[in-house]
Amino acid sequence: MRERIRSFAQSPWAICAVAAVVSIAAAAFSAAFPLLATDTACRYAPMAEAFAAGEWIEAFHPRFGVGMSVAGGLAVRLFGMDGYSACSLVSAFAWGLGVLPVFRIAERVFDRRTAWFAAILYVICPQMLVWALKGLREPFKALGILLMADALFRCRGSGWLNFAEAACGLLLLFTFKVDGVVVGGAFAVAYAVLDRFRARTWALAAWGLLAVQPMCWLVFEWTGAWLPAPQYAPYFHRLFGG
């Protein structure tokens, strides 16, 4: 039995299995017992329902990104649940997936044993779990940061799977929170330097540019400035007029 546990822990699929189980369990629990939070009740839940109903004007707001409306809206559409439960579900799922990059980063920096302890600490930490149960966007941002950090640690000599990881992280950072754009941009620059501007770097740059376009369009609609986040619009207008 002990040997079996040890060989399971050594398997690269073990943490994937743990991440999948934690994500699905957290998502199911949060959908069944969502915690009430004003932010989700007044913003993300109605936005998700509006997205599911195809009411685009009500579905998006530049201050809150496009990610939560789309993710929550798809959950409303797919599972036929209300907006609040849908936001809790996707948020909890994202929180659960965070186990995987935490494990991989800890394994890279220290060793596999530390990685397992990091995964355990991540799962038992209540603060992040509460945010997830409330259907907030923070678990997505945390997942984006962790994915990008892991991609940075493994980008030298890695293949296109590493690019996929970075692309997912960048997408999350660019679309879920407006303060994630600068952080995502900094990660992208660091990735380019570590990758020595090879093909993946340019692919990631193209992907990043593509990923911010929905937000740029949304901010342009509201402020008249083609920017990935609305808080810079006043500075943009001050510099370029308008």
Binding site: T114, L121, Q127, M128, W131, P139, I145
Partner: peptide, 24 residues
């Protein structure tokens, strides 16, 4: 505070190292 709290899992990796060190 939760704007910054998303970075906490990175900190916990050192906490995990300390637990792993005690373990072995």
């Amino acid at each position: 505070p939760r704007y910054f709290g998303v970075l906490a899992p990175i900190l916990w990796i050192w906490a995990a190292w300390s637990l792993a060190s005690v373990w072995s």
